[in-house]
């Protein structure tokens, strides 16, 4: 309440906050990420527990979307088979920029138990789409999901928006 009370009174308390526009935008961006949930195997079952009231994934500002057009990031939870790999690629390409990927569990990180003899499993979803955050575990605990989400928020809040190419030294 301290901050809001100060904003009520522009003369006494100040009423002004100094900061960069980029930081404000990134703060907003990182606190309302909508996700395309891509549940493929048992990690998706763990993710249901994560979404339910005990762990409450929505406190991060995440809302599940069923369309890639409305999603900011895609959550790949489970075993990526070759049959599904083509579909994931299409869905990822349909998402609007800026877009992020969280890879959940051993299977989508590196193939998991199918890493050697699985003729039908892609050995890591990062072979077809760029992954921002890896959450290890088989399946990961909800605490690990929380940590992964915080890592993604951290990443988004430090990203450049203006003069991106100049700052990255591309030009």
């Amino acid at each position: 309440m301290g901050l809001l009370n100060k904003l009520d009174d522009p003369y006494d308390g100040g009423g002004i906050i100094l900061g960069k526009v980029e930081e404000l935008l990134n703060w907003g961006r990182s606190k309302s990420d909508w996700y395309l949930h891509f549940g493929l195997a048992c990690c998706a079952i763990e993710f249901m527990a994560m979404n339910a009231s005990h762990f409450d994934f929505m406190r991060f500002g995440t809302i599940p979307r069923t369309s890639p057009r409305q999603a900011d990031f895609i959550m790949v939870t489970g075993t990526v088979t070759f049959k599904m790999a083509d579909r994931i690629k299409v869905l990822y390409e349909q998402m609007a920029e800026p877009k992020y990927v969280i890879s959940v569990g051993s299977c989508s990180n590196c193939g998991g138990p199918y890493w050697e003899h699985g003729y039908h499993v892609l050995k890591g979803v990062d072979k077809i789409i760029p992954v921002d955050v890896y959450i290890p575990g088989c399946p990961p605990r909800p605490e690990a999901f929380e940590e992964g989400m915080m890592k993604l928020q951290e990443k988004i809040s430090h990203q450049a928006i203006f003069n991106k190419r100049k700052r990255l030294g591309i030009e």
Binding site: F82, K83, A85, D86, Y119, K123, K127, I128
Partner: peptide
């Protein structure tokens, strides 16, 4: 279960997995 364009029958004893599938490395 498998994609329609998959070649071979994977649970046969003499099956060898292909190198690539749609540009993705199999193993």
């Amino acid at each position: 279960l498998l994609p329609y364009d998959w070649e071979g029958y994977p649970l046969r004893k003499d099956y060898t997995a292909p190198e690539m599938y749609h540009g993705m490395k199999v193993s």
